[in-house]
């Protein structure tokens, strides 16, 4: 059996929505170099609170790149409240699964999107329920540094 599903390899080899949005309405970055993965999501949001465009940059392994790519596909053109409902499980399922020790890559994708949305809310003075967003944790504990 291959390390990754065909879907993962497809999104890794041909990642969708790679790049930067200049003057993005919301930007979210999670992860850190010590742990070996960083994801950064850029959102362009229109007046109807719909994600017009989304781009990502990722430093990480095959599944980190594939998870970012898939996550951006899943939220592109969607209303913000729908994007906020995106779970790491949905990303994993859309990729036809990830190896157990790679599941955190899909978690990073979910968190990066939430963080970008939060950034948009913050910039625009929109009120939101803090508890619905992941805490800004530093993940240094996971690397034993």
């Amino acid at each position: 059996m291959a390390l990754y599903s065909e879907k993962v390899m497809d999104h890794f080899r041909n990642p969708r929505n790679v790049g930067v949005i200049e003057n993005a309405d919301g930007v979210g970055e999670v992860g850190n170099p010590v742990c070996g993965d960083i994801m950064k999501i850029y959102l362009k949001i229109n007046d109807d609170q719909i994600i017009d465009d989304v781009k990502f940059e990722t430093f990480g392994c095959g599944s980190a790149i594939a998870s970012s790519s898939m996550a951006t596909e899943l939220i592109k053109g969607k209303p913000l409240d729908e994007a906020l409902k995106l779970t790491n499980k949905a990303v994993t399922e859309a990729l036809d699964g990830l190896p157990a020790h790679k599941l955190h890559c899909s978690v990073l994708a979910e968190e990066a999107i939430k963080k970008a949305v939060k950034d948009y809310y913050d910039k625009n003075g929109i009120e939101y329920d803090e508890s619905k967003f992941p805490k800004d944790h530093d993940c240094e504990h996971c690397c034993g540094v």
Partner: peptide, 21 residues
């Protein structure tokens, strides 16, 4: 780390003083 199947990168590279990143 992703190829070693653990959260840490190679103990050899850490032993020669390479930082994690």
């Amino acid at each position: 780390a992703c190829t070693s199947g653990s959260l840490d990168p190679s103990h050899v590279l850490l032993a020669i003083g390479r930082p994690h990143e």
